[in-house]
Design a protein around this nucleic acid. Sequence first.
DNA 1: TTGAAAGCGCTAACAT
DNA 2: ATGTTAGCGCTTTCAA
Lengths: 354, 354
Amino acid sequence: MQGSGNQRRSLTLEEIGQRAGVSRSTVSRVLNDHPDVRAEVRSRVNAVIAETGYRPNPAARALVSNRSGLIGLVILTDVDELFGDPYFPELVSGIQEGCAEHDLIFTIFPIRGDDGRSDTLVSQITRGMVDGVIITAGPHSDELIVALRDRGVRVVVVGQPADERGLLRVDVENRVGSRGAVRHLIDHGAQPVGFVGTTPEYLYGVERLAGYREALVEAGLGPDDRLVCLDLPGAAGGYRATTRLLEEQPGAIFVATDPMAVGAYRAIADAGLRVPDDIAVVGFDGLPRGPQLDPALTTVVQPVAAVGRTAVGLLAGDQDGVEPILLPTELRVGASCPRAGIDSHADPAAGGRP
Amino acid sequence: MQGSGNQRRSLTLEEIGQRAGVSRSTVSRVLNDHPDVRAEVRSRVNAVIAETGYRPNPAARALVSNRSGLIGLVILTDVDELFGDPYFPELVSGIQEGCAEHDLIFTIFPIRGDDGRSDTLVSQITRGMVDGVIITAGPHSDELIVALRDRGVRVVVVGQPADERGLLRVDVENRVGSRGAVRHLIDHGAQPVGFVGTTPEYLYGVERLAGYREALVEAGLGPDDRLVCLDLPGAAGGYRATTRLLEEQPGAIFVATDPMAVGAYRAIADAGLRVPDDIAVVGFDGLPRGPQLDPALTTVVQPVAAVGRTAVGLLAGDQDGVEPILLPTELRVGASCPRAGIDSHADPAAGGRP
DNA sequence: TTGAAAGCGCTAACAT
DNA sequence: ATGTTAGCGCTTTCAA
């Protein structure tokens, strides 16, 4: 009747020590991989721990060490957005991997945007309950972020500026990525190159627009604001913005998000035009669970999972470098804007559908 | 320079007591709404708390009281499933509401199925770190559930049997709901009524099949196993199962999940048949973010958000009744199987598309 | 009604 | 290399 059966009252370090014939300090050392323990004693203690199924009390641990081993992802968007956006599963996967690497426990705090208690609660739970949090963009985040930081919680922001707030930040190279994409469109040859993107409350939208402008300037093509059409992210916004843009008769369009590219495709088709022959299109996102377009969209792939992993690394490490970490994107070439000179015009011999 | 500015070192009860001119015990009483505090003292203490922005240390609280105020949703399915299934956003919303009502903090533990550490970690964190957990179905859940229960964590299972494991359980009336649905199909008149459902590793699949059988027996129609076609949940499985079922020439089909109904619609169309004229269809789920079908699917609406809310209530209360709570479903009548006698045949005068 | 004191289970000096 | 001791910040008897 011994072993790992169901004991309701939990064991304590002291009791483990008694059974192993050592003091509670020694057991604590074994538990925390402290070097100064004789191998024989260590294995004896480990045997007792295994036999009893003992687990240290996390609350006691957190109290004395101020570390809980918990990493939180605070999601301030509402449930619909959370489950609808293909961004989150990627981020969550990455964080999971990072937590596994660093032996941390991963937990998501889904805070309702309209939940007045959110900042109170989060600041409460994070006082010693969570070692670090990753916060994704959200309208109400500012106050919360500042509150957490002031309480000494390590905070990594994702998808939003770190400002001078002294926050850690991980994100992707939005500007560089979109500059490369637009360069690709320019090399493709069709002119002029228009921009369909989001209104400026989205940081990534601003950055991607900046990259677009840089590429034009580099190519000696002065940016023309009539070629920039902004709307809400998502297919509907993409449709509207593209419809407006088409009046300027662009030869190519850089669309700041893949969902918007869905709308762009629709608008282009509705205008009686074809991708890529009449208009070349390049998107941005390249998420595994993102939209699948036909013809396959050339897009800037952003490494969202890597962002998650990196964010955890930042939280786990104790480096205090406040420099944002921006991960590089990669252009994935599809049929919507083939590589210039190689397959820029569909090969008639290749035939239609397989 | 006073007030709620950013102090790195957190205040303690003792310090609050000093500033308010009382002992730490009194402050603790105020914090916990203990009645035996003079109103004047109470408000003085509260003033100091508000002024300083003091928050009790949750770890210390958890250590001494064995309660953390955290409710966890343990999700054992992998990320793809989590974000793909319209079930989860509903459940999450409901739990959020429940936690708000009971002043609990809601956190999701996304455990990777292949993560060997899962049971170790979860049992670790839940020792005092989490007051109660809600666990959704999953292949590896058994071991974990038992481990948690043995450590005295309150566990509510959702979407899986409580067995004799002494677990709390909240779910929907799968059996009763599907019995009603099949009754509705029988009343509709088309014969025979087939069943498209999931293979029996899904509890809800088993229960919905049982309800189907009950309805047939009640109606004096012996159940015929050739009319029962099982496959994986999801549209593809629904398509396969329905295709097989169509060989038996059913006049009506009860499909155990709405996603399978998507496949059923497709199979019926591929067979050159129409819904509802040739075959009436009733589904099960009715989730807000579930598939939208045309003609609109008559389906059994399961109150998933209410399940989440109820689960939290069970965790928050200290009732130890182990009886499962099964919430009633509701039939939502659409065009795929109209109410008998009222609009069972499409009105030709109603015209085609608008 | 309030304060003093004990102790939750653990870690980390400090001894030895 | 190991044991002893002193807290971490809180709740909760027990006295007053």
